[in-house]
């Protein structure tokens, strides 16, 4: 099993396909589920690879052991037919055994996947065309908050992600942590994530969902429990009033223009629900669903012309002059 994994990874490296240590790879497992799946993949690869090589060997010997002697077709002899019959019968029997074995290995892994106990953290995740909205659930309503395109989870604790469909079908997939699960309108699905070590794991929508399906990524950031709790408390707070005058002007522009129709910033009158909650937008690693790293420059570029940065995005172009744009980007960049 381990050997198979090394083989698969080795072949991958050998082909010069880049390292498998990327943040979005099923071979680079950092979660309980993903590890089990990677081991099963190794087993299947070894078994199937062996079968393939045996078939190739049989084919090679079959065609090279004797060449055409004459054009006249031969009538097969009874003994050779019987011998061939036995060989084929044994091969079929071995196929049945192999298939049965793989099926049971597959069952066992499936059972293991569902065995993770539920504990504490529950996130309700909605997939929209083309971004993700995460709502951290809590018994106390005041401890519920919304964020977008980024999940922070505590290392070592199972996290229940409830997948709620809104518009079209999306699929939630963080290959380094777990297999994928579809988000389907009219159905309730869920998946449990459990990160084994801290790190940033990238995920991406895996079910074609329209024009910008390619740009519907998100990050899962696994942190030590104390850091996670600190982050969660920070997220619960309303946005700080801007300290410098440019950011303050930016807030005024934000509230005067149509931004607030779709976006919420807690602590201000902006309470739109159609787009991502921006209360702590600058604390997130990326904007536009994994498309750009969060910097003042990328925020300005995104606000200035969303349709060029991400054609078809539901974010409209809000006309701003240069000063307003500078101010708004300063304000957004201050929303840590």
């Amino acid at each position: 099993m381990r050997a198979g994994r090394r083989l698969a990874i080795g072949v991958g490296l050998g082909l010069g396909l880049g390292g498998c240590s990327g943040s979005q790879s099923a071979l680079d497992a950092h979660g309980a589920q993903a590890s089990a799946l990677r081991d099963l993949m190794g087993l299947f690869t070894v078994v199937c690879g062996t079968v393939w090589l045996l078939v190739l060997l049989a084919l090679a010997v079959a065609v090279w052991r004797r060449r055409a002697s004459g054009r006249e077709p031969a009538e097969p002899g009874a003994t050779s037919e019987r011998r061939l019959g036995i060989v084929v019968g044994v091969a079929v029997a071995l196929t049945v055994l192999t298939i049965t074995g793989l099926t049971f290995a597959s069952y066992r892994t499936t059972r293991g996947l569902t065995g993770i106990a539920d504990e504490g953290v529950t996130i309700r995740l909605r997939g929209y065309q083309w971004w993700w909205e995460a709502t951290y659930q809590d018994q106390a309503p005041e401890r519920v908050f919304r964020t977008a395109n980024e999940l922070r989870i505590p290392v070592g604790r199972p996290v229940r992600v409830e997948l709620a469909g809104v518009d079209v079908i999306h699929s939630f997939w963080v290959p380094s942590l777990a297999g994928k699960q579809d988000i389907i309108p009219g159905r309730q699905n869920e998946i449990t994530l459990k990160a084994e070590r801290p790190g940033i794991y990238r995920g991406q929508c895996a079910e074609f969902c329209g024009l910008q399906h390619a740009h519907m990524a998100f990050l899962v950031i696994a942190e030590l429990p104390e850091n996670y709790e600190a982050w969660r408390s920070a997220q619960l707070r309303a946005a700080e009033p801007p300290a410098d005058p440019e950011a303050a002007r930016g807030r005024d522009v934000f509230l005067a223009k149509s931004c607030k129709a779709c976006h919420a910033i807690r602590g201000t009158p902006a309470g739109g629900v159609l787009g991502p909650d921006l209360t702590h937008v600058a604390s997130r690693e990326t904007i536009a669903a994994g498309l750009l790293p969060t910097t003042r420059g990328s925020l300005a570029a995104w606000v200035a012309d969303p349709q060029t940065v991400k054609p078809g995005s539901k974010m409209p172009l809000v006309p701003l002059d240069a000063d307003e744009l500078r101010a708004v980007s300063a304000y957004l960049a201050s929303l840590k």
């Binding site: 799946l37 099963l40 993949m41 299947f44 199937c48 892994t109 499936t110 297999g179 895996a206």
Partner: peptide
């Protein structure tokens, strides 16, 4: 070879990773 990768995608857990 295609048939054998078919055996892989027929497995529910493996398909969760390689599907789509």
């Amino acid at each position: 070879l295609g048939g054998l990768t078919g055996v892989m995608v027929a497995s529910v857990p493996l398909d969760l990773q390689v599907h789509d």
